[in-house]
Design a protein around this nucleic acid. Structure first.
Lengths: 340, 340
DNA sequence: TTGTATGCGTTATCAT
DNA sequence: ATGATAACGCATACAA
């Protein structure tokens, strides 16, 4: 009773052959009486068809898994949508949240070898040694969206997000802001580290010398973390008497948090303080004020990754591919008042 | 060459047995020489393991499919996240966009019988006769999120969105607004029709008599459609000299479009015009001004649906379940200036 | 270590 | 219309 009933047991319970049971449930060619008997037996013993077995027999479609830390992140949502589109009806797409436990991605890659899927697309926040190891050993194809050493021999699509930070700093300097603070994300992630480095390089290039107290780290890439960090940044600048006319945030969510914090403190955006994000989320264009941001082309990256996987399915022997995507600055109202 | 190579052919190409080929690739117990030969042969003929077969042999997990019109819709994203969480690691979750073609949902239900999945969660915008038919016939369990006649015998979780509209109208009247316009969504959808009816009932209840010109229909449940519709509404009201101090929008995206349109026309929100949404999207709380909305508890609905499916897996024979969720009003700055 | 044979749960082919 | 059986692609128990 505790085990999962098979079609075999349905047939036994109904007192008919296996083949008849199958036909009665799929409705191919069976007498009304047979259908009645079989469906009754199936319901009685609690039979549910096994999708895997059906799929095997019927020559089912390929399945690819898309694994990200947080499905709710708008960035990943864009990727998800693009991947789904690119894969089309012929390939089924599963999503898997890996953010709950560390190195869950590694388990996932290993589980691929147990039939979890025919291919995998991941966008890992951190590339741990264990992950590198798993990537090197995998037999089923994996595409990584994010920074990755090329000698791993893994299909890869990436974008240099450190230059993205450079672009916003360039823009801020160009419109006359020189007292630029920054809200970083956690430094122990790949994007976090890259953007942190990008900011350091940019201020050096422009000969800016932001005080340490204007460089702050949010605990997470979220709006609430952004509010918290920005509030601290603004009050600290005020107390210390530090000039501050712009804040670079390392993603849109933090930036929106920063705008919220600024307003609560009565700071006007962009007149008193310019605020920028990164990712060019849908919300950026819609926000009030609209958020200046840098598009990292998430949709395009997702589409490219999906295409790479399709092409690898078609030709498993071809050399590993690498493609990159250009960051593009999108200037909006959070740094410049709109032309009237 | 055009067909998909199987392990059998790898074994043949390597001149070893099927079992040895299997072991060499999974790395169980095989000599280095064997591993080398087999992996070489596999690479040469372009072998990729079949996930379905592996999963069948290894006793793979259940797979459920979540099908919605647009994966990008924040509403569905919340559901997706909750479903993923509730299902846990033991059940794999696939997403499927059904918005591309009409009645693609029906095809999906039928394709379930071909091994596409062990269970299905759908949130259809429209319940067509064909869909009803497919639901009545399906052998694999389906949970419908949305309005559904109970005699279909399908597990169902729903929320009455017509009362949601009533709640915002009550609120607007309570704060002294009586010249209330509305931006509806497409009427040929389930939510669209329900909310339209809800508005009609509410204005009747409060003895309001909004002129026809203040009741408008957006072409879609999107921000851009909202901007378009709201612009038309505001300019029309201005030209006709109609008083207008509030606009009920049937979802958050349209409402945000309406706020955008209002600002472009120089209308102050909420002082001159109050604007409300429905869905209580994440963006609602973060927007500027924060959007008064009605939570339809998407996350909770998703979680309930996932749980229903799990419970049906556990006991296929139990009677069909129905659960509902309460709409709750969330008052924010788009209708009332914040307390200072 | 390697090969042979069986079975995972289902549908399709071929008889009857 | 129904029943017996092979096959889908793979991993493993067993024998060698």
């Amino acid at each position: 009773m505790g085990t999962k009933p098979t079609l075999h047991e349905v047939a036994a319970a109904a007192g008919v052959s296996l083949a008849s049971a199958s036909r009665a449930l799929t409705g191919r060619s069976a007498s009304p009486e047979m259908v009645r008997k079989v469906r009754a037996a199936a319901k009685r013993i609690g039979y549910l068809p096994d999708a895997t077995a059906r799929s095997l027999r019927l020559g089912g479609h390929r399945q690819v898994v898309f694994a990200v830390d947080d499905i709710g992140n708008p960035n990943y949502v864009q990727m998800l949508r693009a991947i789904e589109e690119e894969l089309g009806d012929a390939i089924r797409l599963s999503v898997s949240a890996t953010g709950r436990r560390p190195d869950q991605t590694v388990e996932l890659i290993r589980s691929l070898s147990m039939g979890a899927g025919d291919g995998l697309i991941i966008s890992p926040l951190r590339v741990t040694p264990a992950l590198r190891q798993a990537l090197a050993e995998t037999v089923v194809p994996v595409v990584v969206i994010g920074t990755l050493h090329s000698d791993l021999g893994i299909d890869n699509v990436y974008v240099d997000s450190s230059v993205a930070v450079g672009m916003v700093v360039d823009h801020l300097v160009a419109i006359g802001r020189r007292n630029i603070g920054v809200i970083n994300g956690p430094g122990n992630t790949n994007p976090g580290a890259a953007r942190r480095a990008g900011f350091a390089a940019a201020v050096r290039r422009h000969d800016l010398h932001p005080s340490e107290s204007l460089q702050i780290t949010a605990t997470d890439f979220t709006v609430s973390a952004g509010i918290e960090a920005a509030t601290l940044l603004f009050t600290r600048a005020r107390e210390d008497g530090e000039a501050l006319d712009a804040v670079v945030c390392v993603n849109d969510l933090i930036a929106i948090g920063a705008i919220n914090a600024a307003m609560r403190l009565g700071l006007r955006v962009p007149e008193e303080i310019a605020i920028t994000g990164i990712d060019d989320t849908e919300m950026a264009a819609l926000y009030n004020p609209p958020l200046t941001s840098v598009s990292l082309q998430s949709a395009r990256r997702g589409r490219l990754a999906a295409r790479m996987l399709r092409e690898r399915f078609a030709d498993p022997a071809r050399p590993p591919q690498r493609e990159s995507v250009e960051a593009t600055l999108v200037v909006r109202g959070s740094t410049m008042a709109e032309a009237s």
